[in-house]
Design a protein around this nucleic acid. Structure first.
Lengths: 344, 344
DNA sequence: GGAGCTATCTGAAACGTTTCAATTTACAAC
DNA sequence: GTTGTAAATTGAAACGTTTCAGATAGCTCC
């Protein structure tokens, strides 16, 4: 592997000049520049980024911790982050936490050792105390997506979960369905670990929608899931075994909604004729299911691009404020809610 | 950020000794070891991996180029690779090529600049000429998954695509369907860029199955897709607009199969009553669709673990042979093929 | 009390860059 | 020619580690 020294020797200049050439410094004479470039090409020289990083104290690398890479919600976000990062000369070190908070913490530390210049947390699987105690000591470019740590000196990109769930539930209520149930995300976990997961917001939105219609909240229309396919299936099965079954259900994410639909079909019931369903996330699969899934679309691409853009700005050292962005959701009406054809 | 020098000064030893302590060299006295560790903890010292990498000429980083991270086939493989890599002290730089061969090449070069110690190509989106001319010059730890570059000095992990496609097609033929079409992967691209994608093997398997039954091959039962949802939809639409429509179709990957089913349903036809479908990959979604998708299951987890294990062995410098592993596939019978309940 | 060990520790070079003060060169102006 | 100035180049230090030849100290043995 050729080094700058080789280039310098072979083209008869000093190492400093050779460095100036590859960095396109303006003060190198055209003659020298040309000669050095010839040698660079001849030796097929590529600068050693590690040495460069050591010197300039930047790794030009970003850490990305995804809470669950196999959840179809994330890959599209990862893609948009990776593309923009690459176009700005940054590469991505990926860690998948597999929804395990221990791995989240381990990855968090590991990424620092690897000298990443900044970090993006997709889904915020890093434990709150570790993250906050770290942030209180150091100032580090960091963006959190889809998790609210409730700390002001932190860039956060959220989606208006309360309003999204409100819209979904109201949509079902407006269609005249009654009763309308909810399959939520993990609720109890949230309290124990102080993990303000999106599930709480979505649950609140559901309750608010009932309230707005003057309908009393009733615990028996609530089942708790785990954001995974199986959890949705199980929760719906519980509903189906009740004496009175809900006429419609808002399911807190699409993966669970698909599981819930599976349960309904297995019981020989029809969607939406017997039970109407609205999901949340709008993962690609929502268009494939049968019936297709009415759901709350999150601006996935936007979530990713915004995250990396805010991070890049922060990386560029501009003295910028911490941002907390809340993006709107959008109701996507498909078949599972039983609405007449109408643009949502 | 504390450095080794700080540690050395504060604990009254030389930098060399301090280094020996964090690297757990045996010849440091217990007394010194203890004192240095105290300072390390007190200053919250963490070794600078960049400096370390520069010196030891290893980055402890692996490059991973995925041909399409949003294809549900890949995330599970990525997860198994990442987990094992992390447990062995390696982290992963992820590049997503978005099925774009240009990006594949760009990423390939970028990863070298980043001094990755080894590389895994998931789906082999790197152009053949670039890869092979590189390999002929240098010797570099590399594992390719699900693409056969047809070069012997290269670790390759494949699945028996020909046999898989043969099994799928034969399954349809045995059910008495006729004619049986195929939606293939990109075939023409393969010839132009000499890209021996899995699509060719699957196509061959289809042809072999016909031949085995003494059925002549007919071009009009072949449509070319792009391995994406939309491509499957479009290809099926072409079939549906033909004078005679195939009675069953083997679709070369599940994403396209789901697209194809969508097209069929949109035309008001039934699966499998009007058209039977068998896919390939067994992505998680294959169990969610309606009807559920009969498909060829690949050992995804195994593909990932094997890839990283071979790479790690190669990285450890053992003078090992190049390996070419071909894993078997498995027919998973669900509803879309219209077979009676039977274990596959 | 010196030789010979061993166990422990030191100091400096090296890894491949970037950076910058200092130097050299080129050239114009007189 | 000398001087002044700008342009081009050099050389060495630095980044934070690892490594290794050599130094030192403490023993044992005769």
């Amino acid at each position: 592997m050729a080094t700058l020294k080789d280039i310098a020797k072979k083209s008869g200049v000093s190492v400093g000049t050779a460095s100036a050439v590859i960095n396109n410094k303006s003060w190198v004479s055209d003659k020298t520049r040309k000669r050095v470039w010839e040698v660079i090409e001849q030796l097929n020289y590529r600068p050693n980024q590690t040495a460069r990083s050591l010197k300039i104290k930047k790794s030009e690398t970003i850490g990305l911790i995804v809470s669950d890479i196999t959840n179809p919600f994330f890959p599209e976000i990862v893609r948009s982050i990776e593309g923009i990062a690459r176009n700005h000369g940054y590469s991505l070190i990926l860690c998948d936490a597999n929804e395990d908070i221990e791995i989240g913490l381990e990855s968090f530390n590991l990424l620092f050792d690897k000298q990443v210049d900044g970090m993006i947390l997709l889904g915020g699987i890093v434990p709150q105390d570790a993250l906050l105690s770290f942030l209180k000591k150091k100032n580090f470019p960091l963006v959190v997506v889809e998790r609210d740590y409730g700390y002001s000196r932190l860039n956060t990109i959220l989606v208006d979960a309360v309003k999204g769930a409100f819209t979904a539930t109201t949509h079902l209520l407006n269609l005249g369905y009654w009763p309308v149930g909810i399959i939520s995300g993990p609720l109890s976990l949230d309290q124990e670990s102080n993990y303000l997961h999106g599930s709480v917001g979505r649950f609140e939105g559901y309750q608010a929608a009932l309230k707005a219609k003057g309908i009393p909240f009733d615990k028996s229309w609530v089942k708790e899931g785990d954001f995974r396919f199986e959890g949705g299936y199980r929760a719906m099965m519980q509903f189906l075994e009740q004496v009175t079954v809900p006429r419609a259900v808002f399911v807190s994410n699409d993966l669970m909604a698909i599981g819930a639909m599976e349960a309904i079909k297995n019981k020989g019931l029809r969607i939406p004729e017997d039970i109407a369903i609205v999901g949340y996330d709008d993962i690609p699969e929502a268009s494939y299911t049968s019936p297709t899934l009415t759901t709350i679309a999150l601006p996935k691409r936007k979530l990713g691009t915004l995250a990396i853009e805010i991070l890049l700005k922060s990386l560029s050292g501009q003295e910028n404020e911490y941002q907390k962005v809340v993006l709107p959701t959008k109701l996507v009406v498909r078949e599972s809610c039983g609405a007449q054809i109408q643009e949502g």
